[in-house]
Design a protein around this nucleic acid. Structure first.
Length: 575
RNA sequence: GCGCCCGUAGCUCAGCCGGACAGAGCGUCUGCCUCCGGAGCAGAAGGUCAGAGGUUCGAAUCCUCUCGGGCGUACCA
């Protein structure tokens, strides 16, 4: 950051001396793809060529000669071919930055862009009608990691889970549990007589037997049976006479939420707050939204329903907010909920949604704008769906026993580190192919281990060094690090804070995965070209320091991703 | 029909707010363990960046169209 800012200032100063450069012109600096082109590069001469009616190369040369640079920081500045100006950092600059990594240690990478600001990340938000699925897994891991990223860039972050335990879904859930409860009582001979059954069709078209009292669109999952049995164990036949399904709904909700939280905890995810949709009904927030909207004339009645004139705001149709029955559609509480978030004073509200929400959130933003709220504070992350692949075949998401449906099963099978890594390694805009065979394989094919292995290897070197009689020396003479692989590794390691910042701002965790892979690769190259233990003491100390700094970055980076940085990895048995 | 996402090496994907010869992993082929962990390293082969136009000094990247795949488009949640 410092170098980029420093160079930009120097460039601006140089450009000011050249006739015809527009006032607001801001030169940009980027890291060239090829190391040969230096550490930072600007294309400003190419950009200005048209404006100045001059050859880009000529401009580049003039800038390069006019720019005033501290040779202690920049060792080379040259204008090159089409008109790029390339800068090379001085070694001294690199060594200073490297020392700073060791000084900051576990804090290295923390920056302050969000200092003093509060962020709310809403994610998962699955209603408590069943266990979390693999699809929820991508949501959960993305949300948690984005929250981590925001924390590392200085925000005060709240992780929130929004849910609805009132609607039709929950009524059906309660009725399903009740039917299974009655069945359980019969199975245990706690009530006399036989009970009637009927057939229902499950998600993959199979006929299954259910109690006659089972709702037509009831929940067929086995977890319902378990909840019902637990109720039968705890309450006996006492609930048989209940006048409503409420006790069943309540029991189901509690059991399922417990299950969901446990599933999340296995992935090291903990929510700060749970927001109940029902509270919006009770607080009058829904009415407040309707009132606010009606004041603008964008609300009208038709066929007994209340409509929001979204057609006046770029949508091809209007949207119902309150049904003819008087019941709100889900969009109304959604609007009220987001209004509530903004009113709670969050500077940034991140929402993690599956691609199927593509059509709903624009309505929310429209409504918020109409209500005079700053909808730009809401940042929607839309992720594409997950496909499980096993044996080269897509696993159909179904209740079929052999297939995975729940997040829990997935985590149990491949472990939390691999689960998180796989959900994070692809960009959110792409479908995620989750290869179970690859995920389960503890081998070099599995990309997670490449990162963890590099970390473990450094730890192992440090152990070895300690046993030989010396440890990382903070006062090592870093100027002894001159090998190409050493310099490259230093550059990678030192870049961590900027990399993290950029990833946080873009809210694209997969880019952190890409960066960390590069760090691990740079370390492996260094490791294979430069010995540490056994070299002269001064050289060994410097290399130990470099390894320690690499460890810091790998560890901090993995921590942001929510993946462990093991000090050793089990040797695998070669089959 | 309309809206959004995606189409880059045999496979899975980076790169996409335009720039310097298109990158990585896996797979394939060659080498490297008397030496700090070979879950590694060094190297090779492999691409009309779906296709066609356009904008530009310059396009995988921006615009238009076409073709493929996915998701939406409810007074369901």
């Amino acid at each position: 950051m410092a170098m980029r800012a420093y160079l930009q200032r120097a460039l601006l100063e140089a450009l000011r001396q050249i006739d015809g450069v527009p006032n607001g012109f801001l030169p940009t600096l980027e890291v060239p793809k090829v190391a040969q082109h230096g550490d930072l590069s600007t294309n400003c001469a190419l950009k200005l060529a048209r404006h100045l009616h001059r050859a880009p190369m000529q401009i580049a040369e003039e800038v390069a000669t006019r720019i005033a640079l501290d040779p202690d920081r920049i060792e080379a500045c040259e204008a090159v071919r089409p008109g790029f100006i390339n800068f090379r950092f001085s070694h001294r600059q690199l060594y200073q930055a490297l020392a700073a990594v060791l000084e900051a240690g576990p804090q290295f990478g923390r920056t302050g862009a969000g200092q003093g600001q509060r962020a709310l990340v809403e994610f998962v938000s699955a209603n408590p009608t069943g266990p979390l699925t693999v699809g929820h897994g991508r949501n959960a891991v993305l949300g948690d990691t984005i929250a981590n990223l925001l924390e590392w860039t200085g925000y005060d972050v709240t992780r929130e889970y929004y849910f609805n335990d009132a609607g039709r879904q929950m009524r059906v859930l309660g009725a399903s549990v009740r039917a299974r409860y009655e069945q359980a009582l019969h199975d245990r001979n706690l009530v006399a007589g036989s009970y009637a059954t009927k057939h229902a069709t499950d998600g993959v078209g199979r006929r299954v037997e259910v109690p006659a009292s089972f709702p037509d669109d009831g929940y067929l999952g086995h977890y319902i049976v378990e909840i019902a049995r637990a109720l039968a164990d705890a309450e006996g036949a006492a609930l048989l006479s209940a006048t409503s399904d409420a006790p069943f709904t309540q029991a189901a909700k509690e059991a399922i939420f417990q299950d969901i939280e446990r599933t999340l905890q296995r992935l090291d995810i903990r929510m700060d707050t749970f927001f109940n949709e029902r509270s919006l009904y009770e607080s009058g927030a829904l009415d407040a939204v309707l009132q606010g909207l009606s004041g603008t004339g964008l609300l009208y009645e038709k066929d007994g329903a209340t409509w929001f004139r979204t057609s006046a705001m770029g949508k091809d149709s209007d949207t119902v907010l309150v049904k003819r029955t008087g019941e709100p559609t889900y969009r109304l509480p959604d609007i009220a909920y987001h209004r509530d978030k903004l009113q709670r004073g969050y500077d940034v509200c991140v929402n993690v949604f599956g691609a199927d929400h593509i059509a709903t959130y624009p309505d929310i933003l429209r409504a918020l704008r109409v209500l005079g709220l700053d909808a730009d504070r809401i940042d929607v992350i839309l992720y594409q769906f997950v496909t499980l692949v096993r044996g080269g075949q897509e696993v159909k998401m179904s209740t079929r026993k052999a297939n995975f449906v729940t997040l829990d099963e997935l985590t149990a099978e491949v472990g939390p580190d691999v689960t998180r890594f796989f959900f994070l390694m692809r960009s959110v805009g792409r479908h995620l192919e989750f290869d179970l065979d690859l995920a389960k394989e503890a081998s070099d094919k599995n990309p997670v281990f490449y990162l963890q292995y590099a970390h473990a290897r450094i730890c192992s070197i440090q152990d070895k060094a300690a046993s030989v009689g010396f440890e990382t020396d903070v006062k090592a003479d870093l100027a002894l690090l001159t090998h190409e692989t050493e310099l490259n590794l230093i550059k990678q390691v030192v870049h961590f804070p900027q990399a993290l910042c950029a990833v946080a701002e873009a809210r694209e965790p997969h880019r952190l995965v890409v960066y960390l892979r590069e760090v691990a690769a740079a370390f492996s190259h260094f490791y294979h070209h430069c010995r540490i233990i056994g070299e002269p003491r001064a050289t060994a100390s410097a290399r130990m320091a470099l390894a320690a700094a690499t460890r810091v970055v790998l560890c901090n980076g993995l921590t942001v991703l929510g993946i462990s940085a093991p000090e050793r990895m089990e040797k695998r048995d070669e089959a």
